[in-house]
Amino acid sequence: MPPKRRNRLLAVAFVLVGAAAAVWLLLLAANESLNLFYPPHKVVNGDAPVGVGIRAGGMVLEGSVQRAPETLQVAFTLTDRQGADFQVLYDGILPDLFREGQGILVRGQLDASRVFQAEEVLAKHDENYMPPELMSLPTNGGSGLASPAEPH
């Protein structure tokens, strides 16, 4: 092999190996910090890990929202309306579109007693936009999760 071509081949191999290593490292780090999404039945049946950052979602069960009298702490229940529901605790300000019966996303961790300690609560951005995570959940007859594909 002529030296010029060999050099070029070496350079290409070097770049490829370097790029592959970089991507591998990035993905490794991503796996640590990515947040998997779990629907309510997976939170309930134990698929969702405890003490690891995850995301979950569901509909806010009517009548389940309870606020502490002195602080910003709030507790509510998320349900898929098919028998699976779990409790969420949050300390902070709920988004404007947080309402009972509304589909929402929470980000945080499950604690040892399998209560979801939320660090962030996300509601739908507007009446038409639906987080793709919640699209697979069943709708509840008109309100909340209905007609996500309506263009806005």
Partner: peptide
Amino acid sequence: LLGTLYPLAYEAATGGDKISIGPPWFNRF
């Protein structure tokens, strides 16, 4: 690009598991 598209690839590869990559990952790199 990787951080933006990885959730898509992940969903396709795992048959529907949804993930998101948070700001800490982007900030770190």
